[in-house]
């Protein structure tokens, strides 16, 4: 089932044409990896799907981004409501300066959930889904910053899951983590894709190959090639894709 459909998307920062005619279909319950060299626009593209680019002045966006049957750039769209449906995990773990519990409960609280037992339930369920419950269940009121980097990142995933999103955007979620923590996050992503459409930006081609079902290769603001990850990596159609994945540039 198609979850997100992007067609003819163009994005300009003032004069700079950062995304050029991007069209991409995101399947539900699959991992879509966005790969490409630094500055190719993959993070910018990711941020068009939950409208995080709205925060930057002088950005102009053309084209269509459909979340199921909703045009998310329609002027009647409630951006806060959209972001509850499209969760995001950032490159650097960024838990709030609050307790583990309050980090996870933050989203639901803003959404208007106040009942303690309801919040307890959401916190436990989200932490379990993010595979960190066992490590934190006896210290939920401890500062989130007392966790290791990898744990913090899983906490951030739990925090995003607490909103019960449909799509999960991940912007290089393992870029600042060691190999063991990275392994755990990758394992988690493979679990999560049973329930969510996941779009992940990654610098690591091995990571894309390991965890994604589909891959889109970005270069200079364009999608050069997109397809099943296996095919993109074994039989790339475009010479530039081949050069990139064989490590000839990037």
């Amino acid at each position: 089932m198609l979850k997100v459909t992007i067609s003819d998307l163009n994005l300009y920062y003032e004069e700079f044409h950062a995304l050029k005619n991007i069209s991409l279909d995101i399947e539900d319950k699959e991992v879509t990896a966005l790969i490409g060299p630094s500055g190719c626009g993959k993070s910018t593209f990711l941020r068009t799907i939950n409208r995080m680019n709205d925060l930057i002045d002088d950005v102009k966006i053309e084209g269509l981004v459909m979340l199921e049957d909703q045009d998310i750039y329609n002027k009647d769209v409630d951006v806060a409501a959209l972001r509850r449906r499209v969760g995001m995990v950032f490159q650097k773990p960024n838990p709030f300066l609050k307790s583990i519990y309050e980090n996870v409960a933050y989203g639901p609280r803003r959404y208007g959930i106040k009942a303690k037992n309801q919040l307890d339930e959401i916190v436990e369920r989200s932490l379990k889904k993010a595979a960190i419950w066992e490590e934190v269940e006896d210290r939920l009121n401890k500062p989130a910053l007392s966790l290791s980097g990898g744990q913090q990142q899983r906490l951030c995933i739990a925090r995003a899951l607490a909103m019960e999103p449909e799509v999960l955007l991940m912007d290089e979620p393992t870029a600042s983590l060691d190999p063991i923590a990275t392994g755990r996050i990758e394992e988690l992503i493979s679990q999560l894709k049973k329930d969510y459409a996941i779009i992940i930006v990654t610098h690591s081609m091995q990571q894309a190959a390991r965890i994604s079902d589909k891959t889109a290769f970005f270069l200079m603001g364009e999608i050069v090639e997109t397809g099943k990850t296996k095919e993109v990596f074994t039989t790339p159609k475009d010479k530039r894709t081949e050069d990139y994945i064989t490590g000839r540039f990037g």
């Binding site: 925060l55 806060a80 969760g87 950032f90 709030f96 803003r110 951030c156």
Partner: peptide, 21 residues
């Protein structure tokens, strides 16, 4: 740091909620 504002907004909090909380 801006990463806190982004995290809050990405969770569907409004701008005022982000500032206040």
């Amino acid at each position: 740091p801006n990463i806190y504002r982004e995290a809050s907004l990405a969770l569907g909090a409004t701008k005022w909620q982000t500032i206040y909380k």
